[in-house]
Write a protein that binds this DNA or RNA. Structure first.
Lengths: 160, 160
DNA sequence: TCGAATCTCTCGACGTATCGAATTATTTGC
DNA sequence: GCAAATAATTCGATACGTCGAGAGATTCGA
């Protein structure tokens, strides 16, 4: 093996260690946010899912979270009481309830990541445009990999 | 503003969006791992902490988690039953109980991140050594930023 | 050596999240 | 129109995690 390949191998190892640290730290950060607002991880997950689907109903939330409909009712009570979502009856079918985000979750995330951005500004300043592009490309690849690996962890199909 | 600066600004915005996606995904991955082994987030947190301290005792775990000693006893029961840790009495002071990792947690993480590595191999192959170095540097910076921002979220001091 | 201090565990109680079954309100199909 | 189907909620039961008080074992200090 050439000297270059050896150095590459070391870098890849370092990279993997960094990824693990980052994953662990990400969990701690989210847990800290959840604690701050008195939410549990189920609630947080529901909030994230609510962000993705535009016309989310309570029943649909039960489907994608795997909870019973009664559990979802209790969950929505908690989220509504904490000011993260609102219930809004569907005018077209008044049995149904839309779950709409109040934007508070987004606000909080923006605040947190704003703090992080400040810390990272110094780092990004050291990068020329090309390096910045590498960082963007790499991060996108990490996200894709994380998405692809999910079904193998849960043992379920990707979409339900 | 020059054309170059404008492009930079866009890249930074994209980067921030990617960071948020990654954080959300990291939580989902860890949650999935926890579910798979019947652990809750408190248990996972304790496992992470156990990895850091070499001679961890039950009492010390109560301190750093903020749980009561009885809660820690129950927590250790769960972790021990699931095969993640072992209790080992301190020969020097037989009142105390050391919490030692069986390595199962490490194993599982290695397996998960191994799956991710496979997915990422194609991406890394596209990088020359210099780009790889950029990825490593950047990831390190993200981790540092996440670490620094924690106390501002929790409102507590960094170390206790 | 003997009492106080320390470390962990046990026990009983409490809060909370979840479930299944029954309930209410509304829509759909005949 | 009226019965069946559907959406969400309420209610009672259950499981689980946590706490506080106290017990048991061990060590420390006079």
């Amino acid at each position: 093996m050439s000297r270059t390949s050896k150095r590459r191998g070391e870098l890849v190892d370092v990279l993997e260690g960094l990824l693990r640290d980052m994953a662990a730290r990400g969990v701690l950060v989210h847990q800290a946010i959840a604690d701050r607002f008195g939410l549990n991880s189920t609630d947080l997950k529901a909030l994230d899912l609510a962000r993705g689907e535009p016309n989310l109903t309570a029943g649909r939330l039960a489907e994608i979270t795997g909870l019973s409909t009664s559990a979802v009712t209790a969950l929505l009570d908690r989220l509504e009481r904490a000011g993260f979502v609102e219930r809004r009856r569907d005018p077209a079918d008044r049995r149904r309830v839309f779950v709409v985000s109040t934007g508070r979750h987004e606000e909080e995330l923006t605040r947190i990541f704003g703090l992080m951005s400040e810390r990272m500004r110094d780092v990004l300043r050291r990068y020329d445009d090309e390096r910045l592009a590498v960082a963007v490309d790499f991060l996108g690849a990490v996200n894709d990999a994380a998405r692809d690996v999910m079904p193998e962890i849960t043992g379920r199909e990707p979409a339900e």
